[in-house]
Design a protein around this nucleic acid. Sequence first.
RNA 1: GCCGGGAUGGAGGAAUCGGCAGACUCGGAUGCCUCAAAAGCAUCUGCCCGAAAGGGCGUGCGGGUUCAAGUCCCGCUCCCGGCACCA
Length: 946
Amino acid sequence: MSEAAEPAADIPPFRYTAALANEIELRWQDRWEERGTFHAPNPVGPLADPTHPRADAEKLYVLDMFPYPSGAGLHVGHPLGYIGTDSFARFQRMNGRNVLHAMGFDAFGLPAEQYAVQTGTHPRTTTVANIARYRAQLRRLGMGHDERRSVATIDVDFYRWTQWIFLQIFNSWYDPDARKARPIDELVAEFTAGTRPTPDGRPWSELTDVERRRIVDDHRLAYVSEAPVNWCPGLGTVLANEEVTPDGRSDRGNFPVFKRNLKQWMMRITAYGDRLLEDLDRLDWPEPIKLMQRNWIGRSTGAHIDFATAAEPIRVFTTRPDTVFGATYMVLAPEHALVDALVPAAWPEGTRPAWTGGHATPREAVESYRKAAGAKSDVERQAESREKTGVFVGAYATNPVNGAQIPIFIADYVLAGYGTGAIMAVPAQDERDWAFAEVFDLPIVRTVAPPEGFDGKAYTGDGPAINSARADGSLSLDGLGVAEAKAAIISWLEEHGHGAGAVTYRLRDWLFSRQRYWGEPFPIVYDANGQAIALPESMLPVELPEVDDFSPRTFDPNDADSEPETPLSRRKDWVEVELDLGDGPKRYTRETNVMPQWAGSCWYELRYLDPANPDRFVDPDNERYWMGPRSAGDCGGTDLYVGGAEHAVLHLLYARFWHKVLYDLGHVSSVEPFRKLFNQGMIQAYAYTDERGSYVQADEVIERDGGWFHGERPVRREYGKMGKSLRNVVTPDDMCAAYGADTFRLYEMSMGPLEVSRPWETRAVVGSYRFLQRVWRALVDENSGASRVVETPADDETRRLLHRTIDGARADMEAMRFNTAIAKLIELTNGLTRLSGTPREVAEPLVLMLAPFAPHIAEELWERLGHDESLTYVPYPVADPALLVAETVTYPVQINGKVRARVEVAVDAAEEEIRREALAAVAGSLGGREPRKVIVVPGRMVSVVA
RNA sequence: GCCGGGAUGGAGGAAUCGGCAGACUCGGAUGCCUCAAAAGCAUCUGCCCGAAAGGGCGUGCGGGUUCAAGUCCCGCUCCCGGCACCA
């Protein structure tokens, strides 16, 4: 029988127990809140405070990726990054910085909406409750957040500015000559003045209003366009690729999914491709993340080449125009617009049976192949990457450089969305083309000589061009390297009107509308002509209206031609409005899509700076102070941004894009939103399944005899996420109850480097608890509660240990190596246990160094040391350099790489003396022989070669 | 398949610039305290041989460079993350 709830009677009354920790923690959390301890003063506006001790200090903006407040609350994995940033922020406050650290909530999103569809509970109700829970949990962990700045994306005062930023983007165009976004009015002015030609060359004055409107809309950074999506009539929604199963059905409900075009709002992020790419060089981000963004943007240089056909010419993009003499066939994406015009009535004379797919006519073959390709999801098209499929369309194209007639195929390894959706196939220099050529027995002509001994198939490397000359001698690339050959062929193509040098990107424009309820409404109405019109700023916010039913209208699951009807579209009284937009009252209909969840996370870091500003999304002075460039050439942005690597591409790219638009339009002074990025690892956990494959409660599993058991039954262990369904969740609340928040924080920071993922292990938490107990015991007598701090100076050894600790801990803290900083604090503390009392000159710096990790116990001990004020703004200890230098150095002496002896010599000993001492120490091992070589590395070691 | 990252004791990890591998913590062992247990404290704890002294081996695997390699180079294996066959 265990009566664990009752503390044993003989525990000393003043021991640091979980109960005492909880009492201390709740008290200090109240005190911090009352005193506004973590309020960071702004330069201007309601949060300005010239009397604040850090009002004139150097600033530091520390940012976490804000969470989506899920119904399950936090588990121990979530706060890892938050504890890291809080520890860093607290350290930097002690270094005199004015630190801004706040936490908001990314609160629009699908889970609350789906819950609402199921239960009828308004997503706002659920979300607001979840946010309250998250706030309470974070407060309980002792986060030093400025709670005045805690915003949520669902707040009307927040999303009115999300809408405002949308309007800025809508009312802008990208000027490629200026390389920046400019107000759309300036474009109109240029057209009107005739300084910018219209697309078809007609004078602006001769165009109708609708024509003008169309030209302008084609330039906007936010625009409406047909975009291919996964339309699921059975659910009435568009699905993400990951929600579509490999056989083309919906994950939820198993309905058919159709890939088809729908009218969608798009953002012209591709206009910023080059700047998003170039400015990566100015960011202090992990190289792997930058590389992922570079690959995602995927800028490639090459050429467009036009291949003549019986119909219109086929334009291809290629990065290897130098290999055009080796183009022996062409491949179009099955969806390519030109395919229908190319297909003849019958197979041409001599068409090989293998090319027809067994069909009687090209039309049949094409349609059958398209159907098969259309039914495949993108995932499946990838999975089948090895087995090349395709079909001849029955037509030929002319290779412009040598006049060769080359067959045209369609194949799903060519994607409609990249480049021009068509390729010239050069099997000798491209592996996929080689594989396809092998399947269809197509000719292979090498145009780059592979190196001697090359026995592979396609050769993609550099080498002299071969077989690359026109018969009439007017063009020859032979002998040129790849780079020179590219330059030569591009100028030939340009001269003869067959093509031109070109750049393409992998990056595509951003699909920005969602056919859902729980998101920001667009500040857009449509007029009688169906033209999108931006609402004026004065009509913001467009509030999300209440609806009876949160689900979209569903259709017959097989009705591929159905059109989405969003929840908002059913509120006819909201959709139909009469407005005066400057030309008298008229009737309009509102946009009934909502924005994607990304919208709020694209700019929330700016709102933290000025959360209550009613006039602007952020005051320019506040933005410049917290995020502005620090020097010429600096890109500005937050000083630190911590979050998981799963956002490496989408969120971080979208947020950079919005920020750059705001910069171009003069609304912010920083070029980039996040100057420095740090990717924290994930806390993972073991889960256990029994013989039936059901999960068993993980904390009831015991390890014995090299296996795992739940009761008497053996269970299997798997490693991965923490989750309710896996029955392995451990919450911070559990840890606070068992040990207190300080122990929990300290443990998370000491488990390993912040950037590394690692398994959670509850039984190891006690190590951090014991450490805090030892610190407490060093300063407080457990039996009497009296101070154990003595005013006598520390002995020399203890003092040197202290200063080595300060020196090392400070360096570790600067570099966010919290685990090794904590190890050093433990060593210092362990060095105090042999003393009968703890000298104040050691106790005070120890408490201060502990404070970033375990702020509550540190505040409590600091108060017991006789200080009235919180230690939040007390300077972090500084080491005395004189005490860091040892008097002697112990040199290991190696013979042939193995340590055979050690010698201790004075720190300033001459090399000759070290050498003499070392040789004397290993004389026995050498047996009188002369060493062949002796290497003395000052301060390190001596190496003898026998 | 491609791209990126990683692999160190029973476990998490340390070694920051090529210079003593295993700091610190968990777990384990032994002892002190205790009627007993818990808690706490102390000592030990990479593997193998050995009673010990001592010796040998050792940072995923195989090579290489070097007086010296966890660290650098070449070739593999496995694990984790990302992916849009990107021409």
